[in-house]
Design a protein around this nucleic acid. Structure first.
Lengths: 219, 219
DNA sequence: TCCGATATTATGTCTAGACATAATAATCCA
DNA sequence: TGGATTATTATGTCTAGACATAATATCGGA
């Protein structure tokens, strides 16, 4: 086991066992280096990993502190629908429902099909100020998400996940009864400070779920 | 801007703009160090961040490669319900519904209340082999999640998020109509290889959502 | 031709320093 | 006493090496 992993495990253990409690100060990097008999760079690497995992807070001059545990973070895998459906052994198909240019936004609506059934209804708006080439795309055979992925770089994204009953229009599009429970994924992406796209996907609740993992022990 | 951030931004930009495509090999760490005029350790740090962000794959001897972009990862914040409800300005309350010891598992069922309304129905089983002290707990005033957080260290967790209509029993407990759309969060936690607890929380869809962020530019 | 031993290569981990930077604590002067 | 200056401290970033390790490529022999 590497020094890095050893130091992480030691501190993580102290936090989880309650030896170190939220708000407590950890030893400084110098002290930990001396304690474990390794260099400060190695300690720093371990502390960086704990920080990313949300276990500790770090402040210059003040030191490192055990973070409040009221939230914890997990890595959410946001799948590409085409790849997901292919992995399940079905045929993926995108069906364009509408496309409308309004002001500086291009609005696209369509369905993601898994084999013969509609898996998700997508309502998207694309900022043509940020992605001017999108105005030339029909999106009648390629899904806008796939196209965007290949055409413009984005730097950050925000996802919101919730559950809601299908509206009349959504139910009709998905071929389910009105008010059927659906998982709704809303995603906004930015390139720097410029908005790129906002998408709302309504999934049939019985055919889709999302998975997230948490393992602090990742370097 | 630090070398680290600069190198990350350069490679990320090449990936997102399509200059580097999935499967392409990146320059080796040595070459990148020479190119950017910095040391290999700095390059390695940048590559580590890109790897954690899921943008690249790394293989010894073979090199680093642009990852397939069919999934991308985001950081999901899994809130502690008590803290979440407090932050919303309401009073949190846990109500125990049932507690039953069966074999090597302790089954606990209860409600998380936000003020006067039930926000979530929780069904949990706790492995008493891993957490023997739990057998002595009544859980009639403290929620098992809170108790577990304070009493045993866990090392990894897996979350599954989906939508479903409330069953008759769930609807009764939450005070909503049967088949109301609910967000269902199932979480299993482990301590090393030993299972700690499995919990299923059924949330009123109209009162709860989850948020996830993605920003590769985190060191 | 096939197999095993060897060399090569790129990442993984680490060291023992360095200077930068931000935040706090101490000090000194008006 | 109040406010501005200075010193101190811990993290943040970086260097120029080192050895370990895993995976591949190459070469020699049966």
């Amino acid at each position: 086991m590497s020094f890095d992993a050893r130091i992480r495990a030691a501190i993580e253990g102290d936090i989880r066992s309650g030896t170190l409690r939220p708000g407590n100060r950890l030893l400084s990097e110098h002290e930990l280096a001396a304690l474990h008999g390794c260099s400060r760079a190695t300690v720093s690497k371990a502390m960086g990993a704990l920080h990313r995992a949300g276990l500790i807070e770090r402040r210059r001059k003040a030191g490192s502190f055990v973070a409040d545990q009221h939230v914890h973070s997990a890595v959410l895998e946001v799948p590409d629908l085409a790849a997901l459906i292919a992995a399940r052994g079905h045929v993926y198909r995108w069906q364009l429902l509408s496309r409308r240019l309004s002001g500086s936004a291009l609005h696209v609506e369509g369905l993601h099909h898994e084999g013969d059934t509609a898996l998700a209804l997508e309502t998207r708006s694309i900022a043509i100020d940020t992605v001017p080439q999108a105005a030339q795309e029909s999106f009648d055979t390629i899904a806008p998400g796939t196209w965007l992925l290949a055409h413009i770089p984005w730097t950050s994204a925000r996802h919101r996940i919730r559950a809601a009953g299908a509206s009349a229009a959504e139910a009709r599009a998905l071929g389910v009864a009105e008010n059927t429970a659906c998982l709704i994924l809303e995603r906004s992406t930015w390139r720097g400070d410029a908005a790129v796209t906002t998408v709302r996907q309504v999934f049939r609740g019985d055919m889709f779920d999302m998975v997230a993992h948490f393992e602090p022990s990742r370097t």
